[in-house]
Design a protein around this nucleic acid. Sequence first.
DNA 1: AGATCAAATATAGCTAGCCATGAACATAGA
DNA 2: TCTATGTTCATGGCTAGCTATATTTGATCT
Lengths: 152, 152
Amino acid sequence: MNIDSKPYKWQPREQSLGYMINWAARLFAREMDDALRPFGLMSGQLPVFFALADGKPLAQRDLVQLAAVEQSTMAKTLARMERDGLIQRTPDPKDRRSAFISLSPLAEERLPDIAAAVAAINARSHAALAGEDSAHLLELLRRVINGLTDAA
Amino acid sequence: MNIDSKPYKWQPREQSLGYMINWAARLFAREMDDALRPFGLMSGQLPVFFALADGKPLAQRDLVQLAAVEQSTMAKTLARMERDGLIQRTPDPKDRRSAFISLSPLAEERLPDIAAAVAAINARSHAALAGEDSAHLLELLRRVINGLTDAA
DNA sequence: AGATCAAATATAGCTAGCCATGAACATAGA
DNA sequence: TCTATGTTCATGGCTAGCTATATTTGATCT
């Protein structure tokens, strides 16, 4: 037994999954923000672009699902994107609570550059990994995510 | 060549490293916040606990290093922790700009419970992975982080 | 000593998350 | 029909990040 000076030994932070994942996420977000700033958008808006890039309008509720964020988070993200002229809302005639959301012409114009910037960062991060490790990392993350979402 | 309907094909989100890492990080933070709320702290404060748990006071600058966040982020985190009575500052006699930061008695009292809560969540996330996959995941994250920090 | 540069912290202002609550509308049941 | 319940979105208030800038103090160089 060790009853001396250090009462609680935490794992060193490099061995804490939570710490490392948080760190990686912040680095990613920062890279994305840097790369996307010239085009007037930020990392939190990417899932919306992902979802609307094919031209099919979606309701806010669908975007919530796809981005896996809370409804209120998406509401604010969309408000900012609308403020910045990146999306448009057209009322749903069948349900007056809801609206169809689509990319604005401005946003569509910028899509190629945005896609290129995102691809570049993904490439950079994959470069740090050996080829098949990329797939492995994704698989491990998927398992962690499942573990954390299932057991509510 | 494919020149039809869908102008830009993004990767499906489950294959985007940025998306998956961000998602996992949010799930982790949420778990931590839920588990720590009863003890009056939140996930962003954990690195500070990590760093101060052994009783040695540190300067804010050291905590910035250890948590790998920006100075302003740490400043605000510490302000909240001080507001909530979790840390104390004692002025550095050698440098009047700086102060030594240490856990308050209240915080030290809560350390065992906090350590247990954090360990429980780590255990849960590791459970979703086969034994050595845990180490592998950490190693892959380390590589991604290096890749993103090196190439500024 | 005085001026200049560097270091430590604070502050302002923004995005992105979260939770909790409210408002408007839709739907189902009595 | 009307009432109750559920859905969709908005809003307020919080933490955690970031950038950029200011403030104070230390360190250095003439």
